[in-house]
Design a binder for these strands. Sequence first.
DNA 1: GCGACAG
DNA 2: ATCTTGTCGC
Length: 231
Amino acid sequence: MPGASPPFPQNPKDAIALQLQLREQLQFTPFPPERVRLIAGADISFNKFSPEIYAGIVVLSFPGLQIVEQATTVAKADFPYIPGLLSFREMPALLKVWEQLQFKPDVVVLDGHGYAHPRRMGIAAHFGLATNCPALGCGKSVLVGQHGYLAAEKGSFAYLLHNGEKIGAALRTKTGVKPVYISAGHLITLPDALNIMLLCCTRYRIPEPTRQAHLLVNRLRIESGNHKQPK
DNA sequence: GCGACAG
DNA sequence: ATCTTGTCGC
């Protein structure tokens, strides 16, 4: 019965084994900006010492970047945060949100990395495979790899290299601010991911899909905790 | 063994 | 990721 979703591993050993298996299925085919009509940003939020995680996806028009749809869910995190295994913590909740979407986007932006991962299977790659939707990673810091100098001007970039391989790029999304890190997830190439992300940058460091998703899940978390009024 | 380490 | 006020700079 192909297509049935296998359960998520419950321990690091099994999770790593699954990553090594899944990475063989990744495809990096062109997906230029011209083919994007809807783009989504996905993110989660949580309180430091609480198991509740607030997940959300925002769908935006492209290139207009107007919000078309928003969906959220609250779930329990059943996997700890371990660098390199982020998807096993965040994806179950994000997939529930994904199923709720009325309009499936043409491409999804995940908060974190895709190919720029020690085993080339970051959350953007995993999510893209699970949904069979083009996906890319946009992280705020490096997980693995290094890059050289990049100019201060918006649009400048420098490739992220790891073990002699080009795995992603540091991209200046706004003049004079720290870069973000872009990598392909699945069904997209790094150049296309870079071009699409640059077209999502308005006046902030964080590209609009991710920025809106972040705002959404933070609002959800704050309001969720404020329902029960203290007596 | 030591240091690094997405969110 | 979250906790936090003001503050330096374009």
